[in-house]
């Protein structure tokens, strides 16, 4: 489903690469935790796997096809249609309503907003986001915001779900909701990769990679 082969990446002006000659395969239907101390390049690796960065050398294969060296438009389309993302602090648009945030990717995937809104409301119900959908992110709690971000990531039922510290500042109840959602999504046949510092979250994953 997703494979990184001999991946090397270094930031411009950095004396050493963030990681070098890194190879891993992420199979469908599993959850993988990327763990390790801060500064080891976990988030950078996640953004590389999500085709937001291009590796210095090596390749990332999506569905068996090389993807990391494709042009920007192709990688953007892959991100929209094959990937789902949960960011560290939810990264919601504070100026838009909850339902607008959940359905944001419909525009990028070229699907009808009304259909997306229908599914989005169902996801909000499923994850217990009990706020009026016309409310804005600034008016909900951090836990609710992360659940909304999870709904946005799951809207397209992505084949690959990448999560960057999705439970960073959450209470235990919300953390459990998020972890269960990631595991449930993997159970549908998706590949789920989570960057986490939490031993509990890492333990809940099928596999753990220490960087």
């Amino acid at each position: 489903m997703l494979r990184a082969q001999n991946l090397t990446f270094g930031y411009p002006h950095a004396s050493e690469p963030a990681f070098a000659d890194w190879t891993a395969e992420f199979t469908a239907g599993t959850t993988t935790a990327l763990t390790g101390p801060s500064g080891r390049g976990k988030s950078t690796l996640l953004y590389l796997l999500g085709l937001m960065l291009r590796p210095t050398s090596g390749e990332i294969f999506v569905d068996g096809r090389p993807a990391s060296r494709s042009d920007d438009s192709t990688r953007a389309h892959l991100r929209a249609k094959r990937f789902g993302f949960v960011f560290q602090d939810a990264a919601l648009d504070p100026t838009r309503t909850v339902i607008d945030n959940v359905t944001e990717t419909a525009l990028y995937r070229g699907v009808s907003r009304s259909a997306a809104a229908h599914r989005g409301r169902a996801l909000l119900d499923r994850f217990g986001v009990e706020v009026p959908s016309n409310r804005k992110p600034g008016q909900v709690s951090g836990g609710q915001a992360q659940r909304i971000a999870l709904c946005r990531a799951l809207l397209s039922a992505p084949a690959i779900l990448l999560a960057d510290e999705p439970t960073g500042n959450l209470d235990p109840v919300t953390t459990a909701v998020v972890v269960d959602a990631l595991r449930d999504h993997a159970a549908t046949g998706a590949t789920v990769i989570v960057v986490t510092h939490s031993p509990d979250v890492a333990a809940a994953c099928d596999r753990r990679i220490e960087l």
């Binding site: 953004y47 999500g50 937001m52 920007d72 438009s73 953007a76 389309h77 892959l78 991100r79 929209a80 249609k81 990937f83 993302f85 960011f87 990264a91 648009d93 944001e104 990717t105 525009l107 990028y108 995937r109 946005r152």
Partner: peptide, 16 residues
Amino acid sequence: RRDFGRRRALGATRGL
């Protein structure tokens, strides 16, 4: 900037 960064991450092309 953060808004556009998020849009790009979620799959918006530069053209869009």
